[in-house]
Amino acid sequence: MSLTRSRPPKDDAQRRGIAPEKKPKLTKAERKQMRRGGWLDAFSRQNLADTLLTGYLPIIVALIVIVLPLAWMVSSSFKPPSEIVTLNPTLLPQDPTAGNYSSVVDRVPLLTMFGNSIYVTVVGSSIKVLLAVTTAYALVFIKVPGRNFIFLGILVALMVPPEVSMLPNYLTITGLGGRDTLWGIILPGLGTAFGTFLLRQHFMALPKEMFEAAELDGAGHFRKLFQIAAPVSIPAIATVGLVTVVNEWNSFLWPLVITGSAEKMTLPVGLNLLQSVETQAGSYGILMAGAVIVIAPMLVIFAALQKYIVAGLTQGSVK
């Protein structure tokens, strides 16, 4: 498999100046190529065919397989029913219409659901992150009796499938009168084992000297947490925040069982409701429009914050 390095070894060594004595004089073209950076190497004549076959072709195939379903979804959402119920579909809508989008709004109280989703995500995530930060701090810096057992318990909770605690949560929340309410959606999910785990690992790595000066000044735990530990941990906290926001936004099973009326549903449950009222083949443009509406906000957020997310996925586990 020649995928790891497409450049021939000689080029690589030259470019990095490892063996300059072998060929002290570079031609003008070579020097220019060096300045322009690595990817131009791939276009040198002997490499062109190789690059196309082993590099670009698989990438293009992968792009088509991965992106086509999405492109198809967006395109379908603008197609009138006659273009969907056809045996000769086209990639682009011939007669684009926004009718599907207005149908979505007619069928389900979409704006209310959007508001619910935002409320649940913002309130739920804020409390979750605050709890994760304070708990992680307590687990690292405060000598709570048996804290290693508590930490172990949290790790176990991280691995427990959500549908297991769903049942007792359902009975408890229903007992408290939280069925079909927004706080009923938020409350059981407030403990984040993942966030606590990640932040604990992060706090453990902080140098103890950082806190000594503050201790001499008589700072309490709260000041040490919010003036020292938290500010230097912004990237880790941001990572936890992002993962939390995404989980909260995507959450389906719990909101599905705890809500009953359309006015209290979040978007994923609303999408499910839309599917159950729109069962004809011709209306799948409406469903795709609903899906686009639901997906779009997260894509925009991710596009803006991509590098943190990529870092966050691997942090904590691979630090």
Binding site: T135, I142, K143, I150, G191
Partner: peptide
């Protein structure tokens, strides 16, 4: 006395992660 202010968060987290199980 020193750790008291941070205990509610810890206890709450234990409740929501452990009690359901």
């Amino acid at each position: 006395r020193r750790r008291a202010p941070l205990m509610p968060a810890l206890i709450f987290l234990i409740i929501v992660t452990q009690v359901p199980f």
